[in-house]
Design a protein around this nucleic acid. Structure first.
Length: 725
DNA sequence: GGTCGTCCTGTTTTT
DNA sequence: CAGGACGACC
């Protein structure tokens, strides 16, 4: 009898599904049936009774992917598999820590700081230490701290390795930040991973407990794991070596967040005896689309050679739209969508962009034409002010030690507690080494807060009321009552006549979300609900709703596929981003990002590029180098400025390069002269020698050593340089 | 204590 | 161009 789990698999897929024991690396090219392999593999482990559901841990990148994987496995197994662990790294860690928190000096009601909370705390720390915000911008400091954590460098270790003015101060900020989080009984996103690793590594009992529990580990999107995640896997792996990771180094796009591409490149070294299986046959895209993606990605040096192929012959040429401005781009793209998708379901079409800010002109056009759409990501629902304010209350209720949530809620809605009083509270809390909430509770006994104690009392009474209810009242009811107690609806409507109603709608949607959760959960109480919503990802909100166009960043689109894909804003400085142009490693990541974007498409791919784009001030744009890397016979160029169309045949036949068609001169010849070793004449600095040249054309940057002046970094397009030797 | 206006900076992607 | 920080004023 044939095993239906092994039907319809190609040879490589079959091997990936059935190779159960030992380390296994599955290199899964875009569209190569990865999800099918993953779900069949899990079902196969269960079917062959190699493991009980609770002995399997599968980690995915988003909650949505986890949910889908689980339901597909259940469909294959013909029934629910409730005990199988399928989750993201972060939510797996959060759940584990909820159980084991006391071993780390946290209590199990700890709350999770999102990016905004964490930034607020960093700001507070910088202020408290008396450092200047312009010398130590909070965002940059936050990033440094996060980078350190991703490499498992503690604040103590960071301080040891720190040298000089800036680093030693960053170390101080890091230390204070970490101490505060601990005092608040809070963890940021990075802490969830770091603390789990520390616990598994340093607490033998806990470590052994989890090591003996999981017999099979499965990791999706391995190319985007960071060092801490890698260590987490190492520490979860017990006697057995049954770890299967699936990934594609060409799709690694989270380097900026600490993802370490060497995890996948070094898998064989890290896990001796590893078997490698490559899935190279693509079932998704037309040959034209694959060739386009490959033409760009092959310019990267850091990759394992791999060739995707498909049986899907030919396909429509890739259309390149050339336009004047960002507004024009939006108008023409929407027009093209209307033209091509007459009668088709809009859910099969997506507009992908490099940065969230690019969505605006498209939104305007879509509204104007009354086309239904959804934007995934951007300012997430949970980051909206009214939602943030409400969740800050919920967090105070779950965990009153959280000073950041205290600050956010103490005077909203207004209770007559202003900046002065809050700084008094801060001061008192520091002196007495207690939390802000503790000060609020004792305000009656504190002379410094004389006269204000009634205001604090009503706040404390409110928090305490809900603290008493939180473990027994379903979370949606709790939130509803809280909103009423705060009179939040009236406050919002009063506050701003224009945005008020929308904000009220958002509050209502939030309550509805909680109600949905309450219906699905056996114990729908606050603590768990908060943990869940703080780990929502931006794709988690994506639903392929009938007849709605979708827009999102390329990062968010990872793992999704559509019939029609529009990649917009293909200009130097935007895609690739300006800062990537001079950094080879970052440029390669941008290229992978293009690769991910293009391979989302099944049938049709459209690219667009504008000549001018408003960023800070007006900026002339030139088409992205990625366009030039695509073979001309794949492209149909529609120059919407001149209303000229160049088919692939014409382009090839006339031997024209597309940079000429687009009317942009790249001025290679000039570039050729501006190379290292050349002597140039500068109007103010005089004679100098080029010691470094990066970029090309408009973005050519030079480092020039001027005699008697020193090294200057110069943008070639602004400096009136003359080559004299 | 609250509000309004001005100046300044900083701009990528997200768990 | 937008959002935050800060200072002036009510």
């Amino acid at each position: 009898m044939t095993n239906r789990l092994l039907q319809d698999l190609n040879e490589a897929q079959y091997a990936a599904v059935t190779t159960a024991a030992g380390p296994l690396l599955v290199i899964a090219g875009a569209g190569s049936g990865k999800t099918r392999v993953l779900t069949r593999r899990l079902a196969y482990l269960l079917q062959q009774r190699l493991a009980h559901p609770h002995e399997i841990l599968a980690v995915t990148f988003t909650n949505k992917a986890a949910g889908e994987m689980k339901s597909r496995v259940e469909a294959l197994m013909g029934g629910p598999v409730p005990e199988m662990n399928v989750s993201t790294f972060h939510s797996f860690c959060a759940r584990l820590l909820r159980i084991e928190a006391q071993h780390l000096g946290f209590n199990s009601h700890f709350t999770i700081f999102d990016d905004i909370d964490s930034l607020t705390l960093v700001k507070n720390c910088i202020k408290e230490l008396g450092f200047l915000e312009n010398q130590f911008p909070s965002r940059a400091q936050q990033k440094k701290i996060s980078d350190a954590k991703n490499k498992l460098i503690s604040s103590e270790k960071f301080a040891e390795g720190a040298s000089g003015y800036f680093e030693s101060r960053t170390a101080a900020i890091y230390r204070l930040y970490q101490n505060r989080l601990r005092a608040f009984n809070c963890m940021d996103f990075d802490d969830l991973l770091v603390n789990t690793v520390l616990l598994l590594r340093e607490n033998e009992t806990v470590g052994n407990k989890y090591r003996s529990r999981f017999k099979y580990l499965l990791v999706d999107e391995y190319q985007d794991t960071n060092h801490v995640q890698y260590l987490l896997l190492k520490h979860l792996l017990g006697e057995h070596h049954n770890i299967c990771v699936v990934g594609d180094e060409d799709q690694s796009i989270y380097g900026w967040r600490g993802a370490d591409i060497s995890n996948i490149l070094n898998f064989e070294k890290d896990f001796p005896g590893a078997r490698i299986i490559k899935l190279e046959r693509n079932y998704r895209s037309t040959r034209v689309i694959l060739r386009t993606a490959s033409a760009v990605i092959k310019n990267n040096a850091l990759r394992k050679e791999k060739t995707l192929w498909t049986d899907i012959e030919g396909g429509e040429p890739v259309q390149l739209l050339l336009v004047d401005s960002a507004e024009e781009e939006a108008a023409r793209v929407i027009e093209t969508i209307g033209y091509h998708h007459n009668g088709q379901d809009l859910k099969e079409t997506v507009i992908l962009y490099r940065t969230n800010a690019q969505s605006r002109p498209f939104e305007e056009q879509l509204r104007r034409h009354d086309i239904p759409y959804q934007i995934v990501g951007g300012i997430s629902f949970y980051e909206r002010k009214e939602i943030k304010d409400l969740t800050a209350y919920l967090r105070m209720i779950a965990n009153p030690r959280d000073d950041i949530s205290f600050e956010r809620t103490i005077n909203y809605p207004r209770r007559g507690i202003g900046a002065k009083t809050i700084s008094d509270v801060t001061e008192l809390a520091r002196q007495n080494r207690v939390t802000y909430y503790e000060i609020a509770r004792k305000s009656g006994n504190l002379p410094a807060l004389a006269g204000k104690d009634k205001r604090f009392e009503s706040y404390v009474a409110l928090i305490e009321k809900y603290r008493a209810l939180k473990d027994t009242t379903p979370v949606d009811i709790l939130i509803q009552d809280l909103v009423e107690d705060l009179d939040l609806i009236a406050v919002l409507l009063e506050e701003d006549k224009v945005t008020g109603p929308t904000r009220v709608e958002n509050i209502e949607a939030f309550i509805e979300g909680a109600a949905e959760y309450a219906r699905a959960e056996a114990e729908p109480y606050l603590d768990k609900y908060l943990a869940e919503i703080s780990l929502f990802t931006s794709v988690d909100q994506y639903k392929d709703i009938e007849n709605k166009l979708t827009m999102m960043t390329i990062h968010t689109a990872k793992g999704l596929e559509f019939d029609n894909v529009y990649i917009v804003g293909l200009e130097e400085g935007l895609f690739p981003l300006q800062r990537a142009i001079t950094e080879p490693a970052e440029l390669e990541e941008e290229r992978r990002l293009f690769y991910v974007a293009a391979t989302r498409a099944r049938k049709r791919l459209f690219l667009s590029s504008a000549t001018t784009r408003f960023r800070f001030g007006e900026v002339e744009s030139i088409p992205s180098r990625f366009i030039r890397e695509i073979d001309t016979d794949l492209l149909e160029i529609r120059d919407l400025r001149t209303m000229r169309v160049y088919t692939p045949e014409q382009t090839v036949f006339s031997g024209k390069k597309h940079e000429q068609l687009s009317g942009v001169h790249y001025e290679y010849e000039e570039d050729e002269l501006m190379r290292e070793g050349r002597i140039v004449q500068h109007p103010t600095f005089g004679r100098g020698k080029i010691i470094k040249a990066e970029g090309f054309g408009e973005s050519l940057r030079l480092e020039i050593m001027f005699s008697g002046i020193g090294v200057k970094k110069i943008m070639a397009k602004f400096a009136k340089l003359k080559v004299i030797g």
